[in-house]
Design a protein around this nucleic acid. Sequence first.
DNA 1: GGGCGCATGTAATGAGTTACATGATTGA
DNA 2: TCAATCATGTAACTCATTACATGCGCCC
Lengths: 170, 170
Amino acid sequence: MERELLLLGLLRRGDTHGYQLHEFINRYLTFCTDLKKPTAYYLLDKMAASGWIEPTADPTETESNRPPRRVYSLTPEGEEAFQRLLRENLAGHYPASFAGDIGLAFVDLLDPDEARELLNARRAALEAEMTQAEAAPVHTGSLQLVVEHQIRHLRAELDWLDEVIARLDR
Amino acid sequence: MERELLLLGLLRRGDTHGYQLHEFINRYLTFCTDLKKPTAYYLLDKMAASGWIEPTADPTETESNRPPRRVYSLTPEGEEAFQRLLRENLAGHYPASFAGDIGLAFVDLLDPDEARELLNARRAALEAEMTQAEAAPVHTGSLQLVVEHQIRHLRAELDWLDEVIARLDR
DNA sequence: GGGCGCATGTAATGAGTTACATGATTGA
DNA sequence: TCAATCATGTAACTCATTACATGCGCCC
C-alpha cells in the first residue's frame, strides 16, 4: 500500500497525470520506491476503479493536441484512504532487507585479497549513490526527510563496509 | 539470485533438505531474506532442474519412516554457480528501499502531537526488532556479519527516528 | 529526416505468496 | 486424544516487470 500512499500524497499536492507522477518519483524518490511506468498507470487505474481518484476534465487539452493527458484528482474517499494509509504507515515499522548481506555471509570463503577487491567495488557503487543523494535538490516540507534519511543510511552503510574491509586483514 | 546464493551457501556447509533450510533461514536470517516454505521448495526444484544440486540417497531414511526427506548436495556446476554468484553479490551494491519513508514524506500534514504518537509506535516496533537481533545466537565465521550489520542498521534507524521525533516539536 | 521527449497503454511473463492438502510422530 | 512438529507439495492468485505498440511535437 505504500505506493498507493505515495501516489495519493503527490496527487493531493496538485492534480497531475501518470507520466508526470512517474517522472517525479523516478527523479527524486528512487530511494523509497522504484516504480516503473506501467506500474504507475496500473495503480492509477486501480485507484480510479476503487473510487479514490477520478480523471478531471483536462484544462490543458486545448493548448496542444498531443496524446491527451489523463489528469487525476482525489475524491473524498481518496482523501479518506490517504489519511488512513498515512497513519498506518507512520505507526508501523517496515524492515528493510539487505540482499548484499548474503554475499557477506560467505565472504570468509574467499581469500582476503580478493574479498577486499570485490568489496571495494561495492564501496564505489555505494559512494556513487551517496553523491547522487547529496546532489538531490532540497524539497519543501517533510518530503526532504526522505533525502536526509537516505544520506544518513548511506553514511552508516559506508562506515559499516569500511569496518568489514578493515577486518579482512586479520 | 540472492536467494539461490543463500541456499547454495547453506547446502555447501552440509547437505540438507528443504524443511531444514527454510527453518534455519527463518530463525536466523529473517533480516536478509524472508522466504516462505513453498518458495524454498520451488527454488530447490529449480536449481535441481538446472543441475546445480541433486538429491542424494537418504541416509536417515531407515532410522524413521516419516515422510521421506529430499536431501540435496551441490554438483560441480552448483559449486561453480555459487562461486560466481558470491563474487557478483560482493562486488555489487543492492540499495535497500524504505517503505516507511513514504509516510514520513507526508508527516507534516498531521499535527505534531498525533505524529509523535504514531512515530512512537513505530519506534516500539523498531526496538522490538533490535531486541530480537541482539538475542540472536552468535554464528561461526562471516555469517555473524549479517547479525552485526542488522544491529548496526537498527541502531542507526533508531537514532534517525529519535531525531525526527525531536524535530516535530519545532 | 532522424532521434528524443511526451503521453498513453496492452500482453506475456515471472516471482513469490496464500491457502490448501496430506500424513506420520511426539509429547501433554 | 489433541495439538504441535516434521516433511512434503499443489493450485490459485497477486503484484510488478519486460517487452512491445502507438503517435504527436520538437529540435538539429
